[in-house]
Design a protein around this nucleic acid. Structure first.
Length: 422
RNA sequence: GGAGGGGUGGCCGAGUCUGGUUUAAGGCACCGGUCUUGAAAACCGGCGACCCGCAAGGGUCCGCGAGUUCGAAUCUCGCCCCCUCCGCCA
């Protein structure tokens, strides 16, 4: 959520910044009008409340009798008037708040301006691509030949976009998860958490998935549970409605969870292989930081994500999102993409974002130093990394001409010393 | 799922039966001061969040939401959460 005070003071500047992310000016005008109306009503209602309060007190001090009854009647009348004003205030407030929740974040000043994907900037490409003396296969063929990915049975169990990992396929994924968690917790200073994968609706409001993007989520209607689309949701909400000690910042967590997405919009896209499913595993890094340091913290977080590619020995590139391709909540965002030589594609394996105080304001996450007033933290997160796509790159990069696959050196200890998947 | 007991400021905890100087007692923690070579102790003072307002000031907040009342932490109803016992279960 944006800071209404900023919008109020300079609505034109706010509109300019929101225009960069494709937000209509009318949307902001409506918010400004609702805000003005709301404040008028607050002033009026509070005046009435103050009057009633003092007169009620007088009634309490009066002795019972006609005079007291008359006073009660008069205050009762006043109360009815007040009730009407309160009802108006509630309505306006509700409109105002839902309008605020639908405004996207301001882009960071340093984000390149652009309309969409085409104007994203490739910042760097690292790691040499492997030379093949045979034609590398896409992972779905490798997976079927080695019998480590079973597409048919996944579909039988749950339908399209589900698969079963088997044998060394399942084991390789498990090794990747353990290794990445260890890397981030032991070497990058994150503390590991294992959060719920089902959350209450208010958590999704906090991270910005609701109210706008509910149609991409799975939910249980009977219990008001939502399946998390990413560990970002439960981990960020760990500190909802809390005031953190300033010296505890930055707080850095790494979490592994399954992730669930309806992927309604993309039906028909990326249908082959395990690139895009309704359920996938992901290791996620989340940071709660002092506002002054969030720019530097984002670069560090991005570095943590890149390190996974570096150690796996797989080429990657870093893309900076332009204003037109930022998510609803992000002020700045970098993607990390890994090369997959079989399907000849750059695969998005991480998305590292600085949300500044946008999520913190929604989720009410603050920090406090000494006698200072509490202030909003900045939140950041990034995948570290998304499993099925890393699995794709590993299988395709380390495949041999005979159809077997080498286990990357860093993963061998996590596979009981196994060096080859055959 | 059944029965019972609870949810009060950063924490502990009184107040709820019997609605009104509650501006929520008291304690702990924390901050400042006195004293001290320094610290502790003792004593003195301070000590919440949010909203409206240029300010003075005002309002809201006792798990959440409705209701009763001139007036609700206190009474009524619904919901959420926690604890104890029973049942079930990995």
């Amino acid at each position: 959520m944006l800071d209404i005070k900023f919008i109020r003071e300079d609505p034109a500047a706010a509109a300019d910044r929101l225009a960069l992310v494709g937000c209509d000016r009318e949307q902001l005008t409506a918010v400004v009008e609702l805000d003005a109306r709301r404040r008028e009503l607050i002033a009026a209602v509070e005046q009435m409340r103050a009057d009633r309060k003092s007169r009620s007190k007088q009634i309490g001090a009066m002795s019972p009798g006609d005079e007291q009854e008359a006073a009660k009647a008069s205050v009762r009348e006043m109360g009815q008037e007040m009730g009407a004003a309160e009802k108006q205030l509630d309505e306006v407030t509700e409109h105002f708040e839902s309008a605020m929740l639908e405004l996207p974040n301001f882009p960071h000043e340093d984000v390149p301006v652009g309309e969409g994907e085409e104007q994203n900037v490739v910042l760097r490409e690292e790691g040499a691509r492997r030379e093949f003396d045979f034609t590398p296969l896409p992972h779905w063929e490798i997976g079927e030949k080695l019998d480590i990915i079973d597409f048919d049975r996944g579909v039988k169990i749950s339908g399209t976009r589900f698969y079963v990992l088997k044998g060394d396929g399942a084991r390789l994924q498990r090794a990747l998860i353990s290794w990445m968690l260890d890397l981030h917790s032991r070497e990058h200073g994150y503390s590991e958490v294992y959060p719920p994968a089902m959350v209450r609706g208010e958590c999704l409001l906090g991270t910005g998935n609701l109210p706008k993007f509910g149609d991409n989520l799975y939910r249980d209607i009977e219990e008001d549970f939502w399946w998390v689309p990413t560990a970002e949701v439960p981990v960020t909400n760990m500190y909802r409605d809390e005031v953190l000690a300033a010296d505890s910042l930055p707080i850095k967590h790494v979490a592994f969870t399954p992730c669930f997405r309806r992927e309604k919009m993309s039906a028909g896209r990326d249908v082959r292989g395990i690139k895009r499913g309704h359920q996938f595993d992901k290791v996620e890094m989340v940071r709660f930081v002092h506002p002054d340091s969030s720019d530097a913290q984002l670069l560090e977080l991005l570095g943590n994500a890149e390190e996974v590619s570096r150690r796996l020995g797989i080429p990657w590139r870093v893309i900076q999102m332009c204003t037109g391709d930022l998510s609803f909540v992000a002020a700045m965002k970098y993607d990390v993409e890994m090369w997959a030589p079989g399907c000849e594609e750059w695969l998005e394996v991480s998305s590292c974002s600085n949300f500044r105080d946008f999520q913190a304001r929604r989720a009410n996450i603050r920090f406090k130093a000494g006698k200072d007033k509490p202030a909003l933290v900045h939140t950041l997160n990034g995948s570290g990394l998304a499993l099925p796509r890393v699995l794709i790159s590993v299988l395709e990069t380390y495949q041999r001409a005979d159809g077997t696959v080498d286990v990357p050196e860093v993963l061998q200890p996590y596979m009981g010393g196994q060096q080859l998947i055959s």
